[in-house]
Design a binder for these strands. Structure first.
Length: 579
DNA sequence: AAAAAAC
C-alpha cells in the first residue's frame, strides 16, 4: 500500500527494487500480472546495461505454462490452429526453434520456414559454426562468456546463410535476436582489421548496416562493440561529428564497419567524403521501414555506391508487407527467405488488450486512472505526433506522475540520448514517445506498452508492442481506441486474436468500415493524389528545401514549448515533488 | 491511409 501511495504521489526517494516487488505483489491478485517472485528475480538478476546484448541467452526467464488457459482461450490450441493456417505451400518447413529442448530457457517455439535455392543447413549450436565456418574462437568465447547457450531460430538459420555469403531476407518476431544474427557473420567475415597490415581485404569500409533511427543505430553499434571487444576493428556509429573526420582519406580507409541512418550516409557520399566501393556486406535493419518511400531513395543511393562485385545484401524485420518484400527481393541476388513464426504477428507472450475510450479527451483520465494503480515501470506510451508526446508528458508531470520522460525526433540529439540512457538505467517509469521508439529498441525492463494513440498500421502495432515481451519474457500491451479509430479496430483485433490474446466479442462483430467512412477515406486519398500531382513537377532541390524548412519550423516550435515547460521539467529525478 | 524519421 505504501508503494501505491508513493507511486501516485511521486513524492519520495525511491528504491526501485523494493518498489517493484511490492507492486508486483499487489498485482498478483489480478492473476494476469507476472508473479511477484519472477519480477523480483528478473530485477535482481538484471545485468548492467553494457551486458544487455547477451540477454537473449539468459535462462530463468519466467514464462507462462503452455497449457495455461487464459481468458477462455487455450494458448496452445490457439497456436496450433494458427500454424495450421500457413499458406506458403511451396516453402520448405525447416527445423523448429532450437530453444525448445528440455532443459533450456523457454523461449517461445516458432516454426521456421525457408525458401530459396540451396539453403544452407541450419546449426543447432554456436559451436557448430566453428566446425563448419571456422568461426573465430574469440567470438565463440564472447558468446559463451556471457551465457549465450543456444542460437534462437533466426540465429540458427540466418547465421549459416550469411556465413555462406548468401543474400537473405529474414523475418523474425520482435525480441528474438535478429541483431546478433547479422552481426556475428559480419564480425566473422572481417578477419583482420582494415588498419592492420595483415588485412588483405582492400581498403575502406567493408560492412554497412543501416537502421531507421539514430537510437537504433546507436544500439546496434553498442552491440557490435561488445562482440568486437578487445579487437582493433574500427566500428563507426555515423553522425555529423564522425562524418566530419572523414575529410581525411586515411581515416576513412581504416574504418571496418559503419552503422548509420540512411540520410547521414547519403550526405557524406554526396559530399565526396566517403567511398563504399569496398563494402562486402550491406544489411538493412527494420527493412520494411527502410523501404518506405521516404527512405527508399536514400537506401538506393547507398546501394548504388556499393559497387563491389561480391557484395552481400540482407534485410531484417519482424514485419514485411508484400510491397516491401517485393522491393527487397528485387534488390537481393538469389536470395533466401527465412520466416520465423508468423509474419506480421506479435509474440503470444505479450498479453494484449483493447480499451475503449470514447474520444480523445477521455484518454488522459483513463491513463491517469491506470497510472494511479500499481503498474510495472517502465511503461512505454506511444502517441501519434511530436506535439502530442510533449503535451502528454507535460500533463502527466502536472498530474504528479513521477519520473515521466519523453522522446521524439524533434528533440535535440543530446536530449534524445539522455532520455534513452535514463530509460536504460531504469530511471524512467513512464516514457512517452512517438514512432521513433517503435522499432528495434531493446529496453529489457519494459513490461508494459500503452498505445495511447491508435497505431496507424498493423506493422506499427506489432513493432510498438514488441518493445515488451523480449527474449522470452512476458509483456503486456494496452491499446486505447476511440470512436474515430473504429474503422481500423477490426484489423488490429484480428492481430490480437492471431497471437493468442482475447478480444471482446462485440469488436469482432464490428462491420467493415462503413460506406461513409470509406467515402471519407477516399476523399483523403484523392486530395493526396492531387497534392502529389502538384509536387511531381517540382525539382528535388525544392522538395529538399521544403523539407528542411518544415523541420526548422518544428524545431522552433519545440523550443518554444520547452521554454514554457522550464518551470515544470519533464524529467523528474526521483526527489522532486509536484507543485 | 497517415505521421514520423532521416540531414
Amino acid at each position: 500500500m505504501e508503494a501505491f501511495h508513493l507511486l501516485s504521489r511521486g513524492g519520495a526517494k525511491f528504491d526501485k527494487k523494493k518498489f517493484k516487488s511490492e507492486v508486483s505483489l499487489f498485482n498478483g491478485s489480478k492473476g494476469r500480472e507476472p508473479k511477484a517472485s519472477s519480477s523480483a528475480h528478473a530485477l535482481a538478476g538484471e545485468l548492467p546495461p553494457e551486458l544487455d546484448f547477451f540477454k537473449y541467452a539468459q535462462g530463468g526467464i519466467p514464462k507462462r505454462k503452455a497449457d495455461e488457459v487464459e481468458g477462455g482461450i487455450d494458448l496452445k490450441g490457439k497456436k496450433r490452429r494458427v500454424e495450421g493456417d500457413d499458406e506458403d505451400e511451396d516453402e520448405v518447413v525447416g527445423s523448429r526453434d532450437a530453444q525448445q529442448t528440455e532443459d533450456d530457457p523457454p523461449m517461445p517455439r516458432h516454426r521456421v520456414t525457408t525458401k530459396g535455392k540451396d539453403v544452407p543447413e541450419h546449426v543447432e549450436t554456436f559451436e557448430a559454426l566453428r566446425e563448419r565456418f571456422h568461426l573465430p574462437s574469440h567470438l565463440l568465447q564472447k558468446l559463451a562468456q556471457h551465457g549465450y547457450k543456444r542460437p534462437t531460430g533466426i540465429q540458427s538459420h540466418g547465421i549459416p546463410i550469411l556465413m555462406e555469403r548468401r543474400d537473405l531476407a529474414a523475418i523474425s518476431p520482435t525480441g528474438t535476436g535478429k541483431t546478433l544474427s547479422y552481426l556475428l557473420p559480419v564480425m566473422a567475415a572481417l578477419g583482420a582489421p582494415a588498419a592492420s597490415s595483415k588485412s588483405d581485404a582492400g581498403s575502406g569500409v567493408r560492412a554497412v548496416i543501416l537502421a531507421p533511427t539514430r537510437e537504433l543505430a546507436h544500439q546496434i553499434h553498442n552491440e557490435c562493440l561488445k562482440l568486437a571487444q578487445g579487437r582493433k576493428w574500427r566500428i563507426v556509429l555515423f553522425s555529423k561529428a564522425t562524418a566530419a573526420t572523414l575529410a581525411d582519406k586515411k581515416v576513412r580507409e581504416k574504418i571496418d564497419i559503419i552503422i548509420s541512418t540512411p540520410l547521414r550516409l547519403v550526405a557524406s557520399l554526396q559530399a565526396g567524403n566517403l567511398e563504399l566501393d569496398n563494402v562486402r556486406h550491406l544489411f538493412l535493419d527494420e527493412a520494411d521501414r527502410m523501404l518506405d518511400t521516404e527512405f527508399l531513395e536514400q537506401v538506393q543511393e547507398v546501394i548504388a555506391a556499393c559497387t563491389h562485385p561480391e557484395i552481400q545484401k540482407a534485410v531484417f524485420s519482424a514485419t514485411l508487407p508484400a510491397n516491401a518484400e517485393k522491393i527487397a527481393m528485387s534488390m537481393l541476388r538469389d536470395p533466401i527467405r527465412v520466416v520465423v513464426g508468423l509474419k506480421d504477428t506479435p509474440l503470444p507472450l505479450i498479453a494484449q488488450s483493447l480499451t475503449y475510450v470514447a474520444d480523445d479527451q477521455s484518454k488522459l483520465p483513463t491513463l491517469l486512472q491506470y497510472l494511479s494503480q500499481p503498474y510495472n515501470p517502465p511503461v512505454l506510451i506511444f502517441v501519434s505526433s511530436q506535439p502530442r508526446a510533449t503535451s502528454l508528458a507535460e500533463e502527466l508531470v502536472i498530474a504528479g506522475v513521477p519520473n515521466v520522460d519523453c522522446l521524439h525526433a524533434g528533440m535535440t540529439k543530446k536530449e534524445r540520448e539522455d532520455a534513452v540512457s535514463r530509460m536504460r538505467r531504469g530511471e524512467s517509469w513512464v516514457m512517452v514517445s512517438t514512432e521513433v521508439m517503435a522499432r528495434g529498441m531493446d529496453f529489457k525492463g519494459v513490461r508494459e506498452v500503452i498505445n495511447y494513440d491508435f497505431p496507424q498500421s498493423v506493422q506499427s502495432y506489432v513493432h510498438r508492442i514488441g518493445r515488451t515481451g523480449r527474449a522470452g519474457r512476458e509483456g503486456k500491451a494496452i491499446t486505447y481506441f476511440t470512436n474515430e479509430d473504429a474503422p481500423f479496430l477490426k484489423t488490429i483485433a484480428n492481430v490480437l486474436l492471431q497471437s493468442g490474446s482475447t478480444v471482446p466479442e462485440w469488436v469482432l462483430k464490428l462491420p467493415k468500415p462503413s460506406k461513409m467512412k470509406r467515402r471519407e477515406m477516399g476523399k483523403i486519398k484523392r486530395a493526396e493524389a492531387v497534392n502529389n500531382a502538384r509536387r511531381i513537377g517540382r525539382s528535388d532541390a525544392i522538395k529538399k528545401r521544403e523539407m528542411i524548412a518544415g523541420s526548422k519550423r518544428r524545431k522552433e516550435k519545440e523550443q518554444q514549448r520547452k521554454e514554457k515547460l522550464a518551470a515544470a521539467p519533464l524529467s523528474a529525478d526521483g526527489t522532486d515533488g509536484e507543485s
